[in-house]
Amino acid sequence: MDLALLSALNAERAARRACVLVTDLGGGGQWLVREEELAREPWVSRPLSAALHEALRSGKSGSIESEGRALFLSVQAPPVKLVVTGAVHISQALVSMARELTLDMTVIDPRTAFASPERFPSVRLIAEWPGEALKQVPLDRYTAFVALTHDPKIDDPALEAALRSTCFYVGALGSRKTHAKRVERLVEAGFSFDQIARIRAPIGLNIGAVSPAEIALSIVGEIVSTLRADRLAGRARTGS
């Protein structure tokens, strides 16, 4: 591979844009297709475009045959981000799990007593209100958003931003009663029940979690199962 091509690929990832590295396995070259280029069809023969669209949609790399050539499509999606409101005990437990799962984590909390570097030494910490903080960490479709403060003043504006975004996961801590009140507020703010239904609440897989670390585990478990939903559906179909 040409170094310039690898550089271009890494630049796309750093800018959080998806792309596909196409390799002719028979030695016929290698090139990069950016998602926005693909949207501006037709730039290449149609059968390949269809395969590229499908690869980007599913996020799955794979080998294909196109016009007698064996091609490998390597889908390069941006690193998955985890954005959390609430510099709370559960968030502290999430830090090490996120690192192990290579989730790029950010903690937002305007309460400086909570959002202190002593409590969160090794993670991006923004001690601002969500409106300001989210300008620095835009929510995109490779982002999981988790609301953990229990305080509607902090959680609600961030949740509203998450519901307006393409985040693949939106979760909010709180009992069914707390969530019912949250739903009322969101309806009042103009969100439909369909939109609100995106929120995972009560948050996390049901593993009977009690401690902050256990709750953090149930949340990351739910994030991973959402991220790999295609794979899970495939397993259910094949029974494997």
């Binding site: 170094l3 690898l6 990832r13 799955k60 790399s61 889908v75 999606a77 690193p79 998955v80 290579t102």
Partner: peptide
């Protein structure tokens, strides 16, 4: 599948530049 190999490809670039 969403790749988590980004650090590896960045490191590859760094190695070549070294």
């Amino acid at each position: 599948m969403i790749s988590t190999d980004s650090d590896i490809l960045c490191m590859a670039e760094t190695w070549v530049r070294e």
